[in-house]
Amino acid sequence: MRVMVWNVWGRFGGNWREREESIAATLGTYRPDILGLVESWCGEGTDQPRRLAAARDLHAAWAPLSLPSVEYPDHPGIAIGLGLVSRWPILAAERHELPHEQRGGSTPYALLATIDHPRGPLHVIVAGTEWEARYAADHRAQCRSLAALAADQRLDGPLPVLLLADLNAGPGQEELTPLLDTMVDTWSEAGADPAAVTLDSALPYAPRDAVKQLDRRIDHVLARAGRPGSAVAVSGAFLAGDRPIEGVYPSDHYAVGVDMEP
């Protein structure tokens, strides 16, 4: 089972159509079975997960995320959110509110989906957490909330529980501690490069004000075993979207991919 997570940067940057073509081309190369999308867009009668899924006859879901809806004046009514693309049917999808006492305003959510995997229900959480340093308490609270959601016993079963997220924190940063106390970092489990980064300051789109996140691996595929005594089996991990396609980088983040035994 190939699992990927990618912050695809919505319609930002002024060249979203070209970037979406590069995103689709990258996914056509790597062909994930499960794909979590952060900062995917919705509007004009469709959404980005659905568009990406259609190219391979896959299944899709989308849910809102607490981010500004419009960055450019020619994008009225375009919302930013969380997406899921799946090889197998999505049986259910629900939103879970994340803490946001400091920031207030719009409510941030995580997307919890149940996928009809041949071996049983596969529970997948897609999320993006707070990134601004002034809302550090929200950031920590959101990571604790995601850890609690992933540990919920109602998600127990024959398959691992997956968290596909832009956690805005890299290895060694305190925000990840509650999650790593609950789940396995599949990148590390695969023995992949510990120096890998997903928010690269060398990218032309790199957010220069994201000082705490730049040049770190802040996008993660985390997993917990579905039952006590079972294990999370990982056979490899890789970055995707780290090369331009016809001169266009797909996003301001690289994607993380993991090959797992379900």
Rank of each mutant, 00 (worst) to 15 (best):
G104E: 09
V124F: 00
L146E: 01
A192S: 13
D116C: 05
A113Y: 05
A192D: 06
A165P: 00
D138T: 01
V124Q: 00
Q102Y: 06
V197H: 06
S106H: 13
P158H: 13
Q173V: 12
L159N: 03
D181H: 14
W187C: 04
D193N: 15
A110W: 00
H123N: 09
L111V: 06
D185F: 07
H96M: 04
A169D: 02
P121D: 08
L199H: 04
A195Q: 14
W131I: 01
A133T: 15
E130Q: 11
D181M: 13
M183V: 07
W187H: 07
P171T: 11
H96L: 09
D200Q: 11
A141M: 07
T107G: 02
A133D: 15
R119I: 10
I90C: 00
R103V: 00
Q213F: 00
L111Y: 05
A127W: 00
E97V: 15
S145I: 04
A192E: 09
L122I: 05
P171F: 11
V161R: 09
A150P: 02
A133Y: 13
L179R: 04
A93H: 01
D185N: 11
Q142L: 07
R103Q: 10
H100G: 02
H96G: 05
A202P: 11
Q173D: 12
S145D: 12
P204S: 15
R103M: 08
I115S: 08
P108K: 02
I115N: 08
P171Q: 11
E189I: 07
T114K: 08
H96S: 08
L91A: 15
L159I: 11
S201I: 10
I218F: 10
I90Q: 00
I90Y: 03
L179E: 01
P160I: 00
G105A: 13
